[in-house]
Structure formats: structure tokens, C-alpha cells
């Protein structure tokens, strides 16, 4: 037990010293492919979006108050980015054993209640969240598609004010998508935000 504690301390120290966590993708990296089940029972993957310029992947869930705060904004964002050739896909990475509210059945209920116009897919094994390095909900990854070669172009927050949508000054994801859609590099490619930790399986 004592050994374990010392190990944990070493890990904490390491993270504290080295800065950004090493796991997951960075901007410019190839975007990991996925094939995950949507609430309608069908599977969603990059293949379904061959004609898109890219995708807005949002790791989110039902229960997290920060995700809830952003729910209406995610719905609005999905409409805006889809018009620019970047459909939005919501991915729930949470362990439903830890948070029953985030179960597959409850995802269906929430999507219906809120009238989601986009896929809401479940990352049952949590592998996709791990490959991307998603840390919290909501956590956004904008990926671009260049003839089937998918790359990460933006990682981070939806905008700069979680508490008050009226006081938002920078809409990071929309700005990034606008730039990418016009063939330019986004001015901001990485932002941090407060959020709920992803509920990993034990």
C-alpha cells in the first residue's frame, strides 16, 4: 500500500513538472478513426462523412452540469458548423455504471427531449476518448477531412464563458470552423476549460 502511494506521488510530481499530459492527440496529428453506435442503433464513422470538410467532435454527456449549460449552445453550434461543411457529432464517453444518467437508454431520452439534430454516439469501451485524450465534458475536437485523410485542427472549449451565454466574447469552435472552411488556419487552435472529469471505468 505504501509503495502504491509513493508511486502515485511520483506520478503526480511527474505531471506537475512536465506540463501537458502526454496522452491523446495534438493539433496537426492524424485524427483517430472510430466506429460507434448512435442512439438510433446505427454505427457512425468517418466513412459516413466522406463528402464533409471535417467534423466537430464533442465529448459530452447527460449528467454533467457543464454539459447541460452548453446543451442549447451545442445544438445551435451544430446548425452553424453543418452549414460550413463541418457536421457535429456528440460522443458520450462516460461509464454508465458510475453514472446511470449517462446510460445508452438515457442518451436516447435526452436527445429526443432536446431535439438533437446530430448523432449522439456512445463510446462504450472509452477507447475513442482515450485515443483523443479527452479529459472532461464538454471537450471539443475539430477534425478536417482532406480526401479521406483526417487531421486534428482544434482542441478545447466551445467558447469563453460557460456560465453566461450572453457574455461570450470568443466562440472558439465556430471561429476555428469558419477559418478552416475558408481554407485558412484557425487563429486559436487550443483552449482550456473547466468541466466534469470523464467517468472512467474502474
Amino acid at each position: 500500500m505504501k509503495y502504491l502511494l509513493m508511486m502515485m506521488f511520483a506520478v503526480v510530481s511527474l505531471v506537475a513538472q512536465q506540463g501537458a499530459p502526454s496522452s491523446g492527440v495534438a493539433v496537426g496529428d492524424p485524427a483517430p478513426s472510430f466506429r460507434l453506435k448512435n442512439i438510433d442503433g446505427k454505427y457512425v464513422s468517418f466513412d459516413d462523412y466522406r463528402s464533409s470538410k471535417g467534423l466537430v467532435l464533442v465529448f459530452t454527456c447527460n449528467h454533467c452540469p457543464y454539459s447541460v449549460k452548453y446543451e442549447d449552445r451545442i445544438i445551435a453550434l451544430a446548425n452553424e458548423t453543418a452549414k460550413l461543411g463541418f457536421p457535429l457529432v456528440a460522443i458520450n464517453p462516460n461509464d454508465p455504471v458510475k453514472v446511470p444518467e449517462d446510460s445508452y437508454d438515457n442518451m436516447k431520452v435526452r436527445a429526443k427531449e432536446k431535439g438533437f439534430t446530430f448523432p449522439y454516439i456512445v463510446d462504450e469501451t472509452q477507447e475513442v476518448a482515450k485515443q483523443y485524450g479527452a479529459k472532461r465534458t464538454p471537450h471539443v475536437f475539430v477534425v478536417t477531412n482532406s480526401s479521406g485523410s483526417w487531421k486534428v485542427a482544434y482542441i478545447g472549449a466551445i467558447d469563453d464563458n460557460a456560465n453566461d451565454a450572453d457574455k461570450v466574447e470568443s466562440r472558439f469552435v465556430l471561429d476555428a470552423v469558419k477559418s478552416l472552411a475558408s481554407g485558412a488556419a484557425p487563429a486559436v487552435t487550443q483552449t482550456k476549460a473547466i468541466g466534469c472529469t470523464i467517468k472512467w471505468k474502474e
Partner: peptide, 20 residues
């Protein structure tokens, strides 16, 4: 602090922004 993208790094560079 309304703009997390500006202050999270000032607490610690390694912080992804999740709590606790």
C-alpha cells in the same frame, strides 16, 4: 474568473481543466 482559457494555465500548466 469568466474566461477559463486565460486563467487555468496560471494555476498550473498541466491542468486540463477538469475538477476536482
Amino acid at each position: 474568473e469568466p474566461k477559463p482559457h486565460l486563467w487555468i494555465d496560471r494555476v498550473d500548466q498541466s491542468w486540463s481543466g477538469s475538477i476536482p
